[in-house]
């Protein structure tokens, strides 16, 4: 029986090393891949829940109506009817969940109304715009306009 590998034993040892490393890699790999990886695609399926778990800070339009039935009615007929309450009142998820501890901050109409109504050529032509200084002087906007029913 000839020994073909007699003079290549060192190569066999080398190949053996590679084999051990390769198998080691595969074993390690199966142990380290995070749970749920590949279930739905090439990602960890738990990442979906991670993204969904965040708590909203804006309660959404529906939420306010539960307790403030007056305000939406007030809004209903006016030009601001389609605007979400939190566009003006800010994020109020905390308030909606617990109205006693978190009270909505008071609003300064001069700056609030201007964020939308300040005149700017890039705004679409149909949108009512005013140059605050010319239109109202130093007065607050709610001296003449009712925020929930701005039409005069």
């Amino acid at each position: 029986m000839p020994q073909p590998l007699k003079d290549a034993r060192h190569l066999v040892r080398m190949a053996g090393l590679f084999l051990v490393a390769g198998v080691g890699f595969l074993v390690l790999r199966s142990a380290l891949i995070p749970a749920g990886f590949g279930e739905l695609g090439h990602y960890r399926s738990g990442a979906l829940d991670d993204n969904a778990r965040v708590e909203p800070r804006f309660a959404g339009r529906g939420a306010c109506a539960e307790c403030h039935d007056l305000a939406p009615e007030e809004l209903a007929g006016g030009a601001h009817a389609a605007i979400g309450c939190e566009a003006c009142h800010g994020p109020l998820a905390g308030h909606a969940a617990d109205p006693d501890t978190e009270v909505p901050p008071a609003l300064d109409t001069r700056s609030l109304c201007a964020t939308c109504h300040a005149a700017e050529p890039a705004k679409p032509g149909w949108f009512p715009q005013v140059v605050a200084a010319e239109h109202a002087g130093d007065d607050a906007c709610d001296e003449c306009h009712v925020p929930h029913q701005p039409g005069v």
């Binding site: 909203p56 959404g60 939308c116 949108f127």
Partner: peptide, 23 residues
Amino acid sequence: CTLCYHRISRGLTTACCEVCPTG
């Protein structure tokens, strides 16, 4: 942007759409 994944999976709209005054 996650398209407010936490909101849309709760049946809410995204924060940006929620506050957009003109739709």
